[in-house]
Design a protein around this nucleic acid. Structure first.
Length: 491
RNA sequence: CGGGGUGUAGCGCAGUCCGGUUAGCGCACCUGGUUUGGGACCAGGGGGUCGCAGGUUCGAAUCCUGCCACCCCGACCA
């Protein structure tokens, strides 16, 4: 059948593309490296946004909006920052078109050249800190705890739906604080928020940690991250939170007068997650039948498929279904009754499995007679017969079970794919044969990290927070090491 | 930007090596009928500048030259 998707084991990339496209989430755009997010995919993003937004508000943040365009000079004020982003910026050089004097169409009007080029934001630190300069005078103005929901553009060489597109949607928090302690606490707090969201809503187990210096965000003093493991054994960075020190305050001259009347530079953080989370969600849980969406983020939690021969049967079923739907909605469970007579039940079953609807209810004359329905759960594909009495409560519990089960399965997978190695040979062999999170000793130098990356394509995903301290020897150089770090090949 | 691949109906493909009737198949679509508890069946029907531009030839989807687009693997990255 044409809607079938590729198998994970045959071609992981094709499988992933099929999930996104045939699952109805998004498609390639005719614009280079961009994607169109279709309503079903956007609904997942909206669910994510709503939950994250309320988490941000509970931690004292408010939303604001800053410009899409960044003057080139802003970007260059922080040396490490510009170096990190310079290679992937889209640049606006003109502000007008005109008719082509030599023929058809329009050309860029050479007379409309901008004095200073505008960069389409790859991230907003610079334009925001240029603004914060005007907002901060005294310690009383601090902290500033702002988030923005926005699109950003990074001109990546190679793109992948959701995981890396030229334009993507995200949120970026940008905070300013009076002390380094406060800023570090903020960066760590937001990392916790992300981990909470990933584990409890996306059902995605993550490792919290800090990046090695060479993997840090451009301009950060410390980069905190959550790392998740995909089903092909590759790691995916799911969210980052940065302690920016006083780098941006110094670059944009943002100072405040302290209680003691002394002028001080402020301390900063920034943190963000993007539509990449949708890619993570898909790759972590889905199977060869299609998407598996955790109930807490699924746009549709329950679908009801009627099975009938005659109009009379459909009418009887519909009446019963109306009662069931009302009771489900009372419990805030989203439900759809698919009484479309253009496709048959079997087709609908397959289609909703492809779309990852967590629970499917089938109801036909046989069920009605016995006052039951057939319940199928997407994650395990188990089917059972359930009494219509008390059905809503049963389904509420079932959705919760599915949420937990998806998480447990992903966690178990990660556990079996996490292991320690002590020699470089073991390390290389493990990478090639298994992948996953490899805990190994590292001498702490950028040179070693770089060599390992070159030779094996594996990077240090993170140094876990509260990492167990243990004497050992670097797998590459044999130099002494005090802790294991997590290596993996990554997206 | 390097290596590989693909471009033929809305989607997926065959045909290209070795030029030759009217360019074919599956899915989807339209009409009618029978069906409906895991991707229905039968009959009929519509839909194509064969990626673009040149060239060779009596004749080009097929051969030659140039260009374009997309995908995959690298390098880069959320």
């Amino acid at each position: 059948m044409s809607n079938k998707i590729a198998s994970r084991s045959d071609d992981y990339s094709q499988w992933y593309n099929d999930l996104v496209i045939k699952g109805g989430l998004a498609e390639h755009s005719s614009v280079r490296g961009c994607m169109v997010i279709r309503p079903y995919g956007y609904a997942i993003w909206e669910n994510m946004k709503e939950i994250l937004d309320s988490m941000f508000k509970k931690t004292g943040h408010v939303n604001a909006y800053f410009p899409l365009f960044i003057p080139k000079s802003f970007l260059s004020k922080e040396a490490a920052h510009v170096e990190g982003f310079a290679k992937e910026c889209a640049v606006v050089t003109h502000y007008r078109l005109k008719n082509d004097p030599d023929g058809k169409g329009v050309i860029v009007d050479p007379d409309a050249k901008l004095e200073e080029e505008l960069i389409i934001r790859p991230t907003s630190e610079t334009i925001i800190w240029n603004t914060y300069k005007n907002w901060v005078r005294s310690y009383r103005d601090l902290p500033i705890l702002i988030n923005q929901w926005a699109n950003v553009v990074r001109w990546e060489m190679r793109t992948r739906l959701f995981l890396r597109t030229a334009e993507f949607l995200w949120q970026e928090g940008h905070t300013a604080h009076a002390t380094d302690k406060e800023a570090i606490e903020e960066a760590e707090r937001m990392l916790e928020v992300y981990a909470d969201f990933a584990e409890n809503f996306m059902a995605l187990p993550v490792i919290k940690g800090v990046k090695s210096p060479s993997e840090r965000f451009a301009g950060a003093v410390e980069t905190y991250c959550i790392e998740a493991l995909m089903q092909d054994g590759k790691a995916l960075q799911a969210g980052t939170s940065h302690f920016l020190g006083q780098n941006f305050a110094k670059a944009f001259d943002v100072k405040y007068a302290s209680k003691e009347g002394v002028e001080e530079y402020v301390w900063a953080t920034s943190w963000g997650v993007s539509t990449r989370l949708i890619g993570a969600l898909l790759m972590a849980h889905s199977d060869d039948e299609g998407l598996v969406l955790p109930p807490r983020l699924a746009p549709l939690q329950v679908v009801i498929v009627p099975i009938y021969r005659s109009e009379e049967e459909l009418a009887t079923i519909s009446a019963k279904v109306a009662e069931i739907m009302a009771s489900l909605r009372e419990l805030n469970i989203s439900v759809k009754f698919d009484d479309d007579d253009q496709s048959r039940p079997g087709f609908k079953f397959a289609q909703y499995e492809l779309e990852g609807v967590p629970v499917r209810i089938a109801i036909g004359p046989r069920d009605l007679q016995n006052n039951v329905v057939e319940i199928a759960r997407r994650d395990t594909k188990e089917k059972s017969s359930q009494s219509i009495d008390g059905l809503a409560l049963y389904i509420q519990q079932l959705l919760e079970d599915i949420q937990q089960q998806i998480y447990r399965k992903a966690l178990q997978f990660r556990e079996t794919m996490s292991y320690k190695v002590d020699t470089y040979e073991e390390f290389q062999k493990a990478l090639d044969e298994k992948g996953g999170f490899i805990y190994a000793h590292w001498d702490g130098t950028a040179e070693t990290e770089e060599r390992i990356k070159k030779e094996t394509k594996a990077t240090i995903r993170c140094i876990p927070l509260n990492n167990e301290q243990e004497e050992g020897k670097c797998i590459l150089t044999g130099k002494p090491s005090k802790q294991r770090v997590i290596f993996a090949r990554a997206y």
